[in-house]
Design a protein around this nucleic acid. Sequence first.
DNA 1: TATGAATGAGTGTTCATTCAT
DNA 2: TATGAATGAACACTCATTCAT
Lengths: 222, 222, 222, 222
Amino acid sequence: MSEAYTSPRKRSARRDVAGVPGAPASARELRAQGRKTLRKLLDAGMRVFGERGVQAARVDDIVRAARTSHGTFYLYFANKEDLLRALAVECGDEMQLLADGLGAITLDDEGVVELRRFLAAFVTTYRRYGPVIRAWMEGDISDRETSARGVAAFTAIANALGRRMHEAGARGDEVTVAALMAMIERFAYFRTSRRLDLDPESLLDTLTLVVYRGFFGAPVAA
Amino acid sequence: MSEAYTSPRKRSARRDVAGVPGAPASARELRAQGRKTLRKLLDAGMRVFGERGVQAARVDDIVRAARTSHGTFYLYFANKEDLLRALAVECGDEMQLLADGLGAITLDDEGVVELRRFLAAFVTTYRRYGPVIRAWMEGDISDRETSARGVAAFTAIANALGRRMHEAGARGDEVTVAALMAMIERFAYFRTSRRLDLDPESLLDTLTLVVYRGFFGAPVAA
Amino acid sequence: MSEAYTSPRKRSARRDVAGVPGAPASARELRAQGRKTLRKLLDAGMRVFGERGVQAARVDDIVRAARTSHGTFYLYFANKEDLLRALAVECGDEMQLLADGLGAITLDDEGVVELRRFLAAFVTTYRRYGPVIRAWMEGDISDRETSARGVAAFTAIANALGRRMHEAGARGDEVTVAALMAMIERFAYFRTSRRLDLDPESLLDTLTLVVYRGFFGAPVAA
Amino acid sequence: MSEAYTSPRKRSARRDVAGVPGAPASARELRAQGRKTLRKLLDAGMRVFGERGVQAARVDDIVRAARTSHGTFYLYFANKEDLLRALAVECGDEMQLLADGLGAITLDDEGVVELRRFLAAFVTTYRRYGPVIRAWMEGDISDRETSARGVAAFTAIANALGRRMHEAGARGDEVTVAALMAMIERFAYFRTSRRLDLDPESLLDTLTLVVYRGFFGAPVAA
DNA sequence: TATGAATGAGTGTTCATTCAT
DNA sequence: TATGAATGAACACTCATTCAT
């Protein structure tokens, strides 16, 4: 009973438990209109995170990009972190698909083609979810759940790569795979950020070559 | 693209007279006492940048770590960015030394030893200057001069590596070297941040192996 | 190590533990200047809480009343609640003094005089700390410590009154004393808020009479 | 003095056309369905005001408690204040009934019984309308009409009590009656909020005793 | 009559930077 | 050279109220 004064933050924390008003998008039923707005915010978030970086992005940037209001943002997400979490879920799903789709890397031309296809797919995903992936890599995420989801996504891909390396007769140990993934991620980053301003196709060729030779160990005719 | 660090004040610009009020440390003669305080601030800055990240680090964190006051900070640096710049100078010098010190990577055991020595030296530098290096890599620096210094430092190492690869008969083109450096940097990052919690020595062995085989192209007996 | 993104609120919570920057006034050494500002804020807080009420008072009202800035407020208090806590400490001390100062209520004119003196003193304290006292009575305080301090203060006075009633041969049980205190508090409230716009002295006479007769049980010649 | 509740919008005034858009409930004819929804909102309002306090209660809390929507709320009430007004009307009626029902307080056992009955009735009313009554007492209401209705309700009871005291040969002056009512109100508050966690019946006995002796002046055998 | 969605002004809090001592 | 104190713009988050369906 009764009016006990609590600092607004506390109140908000208290309410987070009940969970309704500023509840993460997933916690409420949404109609067509609501789903549309949610999508707008997710897209805008991705865009702004990419432009400004996860840390520097302001909620104001995001709502402006989504052409909506401040209040609306908090109707769908508890805060910026919560938006990041939602994007991480999407990104995780996407990366799982990548992992599942990785075929055998045989020691012939077809293997090279498959590897190149995979790397191209990774880059494509990166162009959309790069900021989330970088946040995972850089440890820029404190939320347990979100962080764990990142680990799971990376692990899925790492395992897929490791298995394929094994099949190809190469070392697929943890460290080697980690080095490989680091290289792929950085490559996608440089590619997406245009820091290496070269022809995308030939960039991809070079990466494929380095990965093939360095990690799958097979001699390849340049 | 992305996260270039700009001090908030820049946004709502005010004045930009080169360096008068809290002139950068280098602009003034310092006595013993002053040099000691400067050192304290540089060390504290490095530490805090490492703990909180360049963007999230607050001047308050730094002065507390240095056991000094806000006022003192601005006696030595014009702002947070200026401190980063000072650290970048140190880091750049260090990386130049690394580049200069890279010997030939021959196709025998001695080559492996030299490569391993170089990688170990890089990791050591990274343990101290990691945050600056990461800020460079991630494009988290907006200041022209500081950024340019990063490019120079990376280029020095890249060139050294490229030359040595050439000598060893391997491809030393820009993209390949970039991939190599990305891998080394990430490795050092994971190593320093203990995200890969394995034995440092064997981590280094694996990295050496992957780099040797993947980039210098030589067959190596595991 | 490293930049994990945490929502600003979380960070602030984390820092509260370390306790330095927005630390409650008591946690830092203050010089003359600082003590003066602290006093200004406490006084302004008391005034604004009185005018607007504890809940409705905005930090902005308080800093305007104290002729200082927003930032300064948070240099001395973690938030509004923290200011209330500080005022509660002062108020608690004051009420303890009241309790300690209550003399015997004898069944003669001197008893009436002592009772009147006590009630006058209570009203004086109330004029200064009324908002805090009301917040305690109304349960408008959620903070454990602050709340407990209120209970302690009330208990001290209640015990003193109960003892004096006993000595006078009257019932000094918990409920009766509570009823007595409720009446006194409400009286002070109406008196301070000028809701009963009558002559203060005769108001006090009437209160003394009612209390004397109703609680100390002695027949008194009007 | 103090905490008069004003809706935030009033401050940044906008329009004040008497009662057009969400006309107060009374202004429209309601069918069965509408009356039911109105009732739900009134009940929920009372409940939430009791739990959170009049000031802290949010429209969102109320509609959630009433299992209806924001839009619906404004179909029945112009704003939060309007809901409070509607509840005040109910409460005022109830208190008028209390006043009308107060019988003579004779100087014998029957007088005690009647007083006890009245106090019990007051407590019952308080259990339902406590928040409104407290808002009146605390001056938490800025609306003229609502406030006036509170004064009228209190005056009705005060007059009834004053008259009965007179009949019993006791002082029934304004101040004494105010003191009496303050005590009764606080008692009901503590009783309802369970701050005095004692047996309700014996609480009521004690209150009756104190009131009887202190205000009606009669000697009573404990 | 009911509802979910949208809005934006209001308020709390932080932190880089300046200033007086 | 050092320091504690002050400042205010920037940003996060809330909630009463309106609107389209």
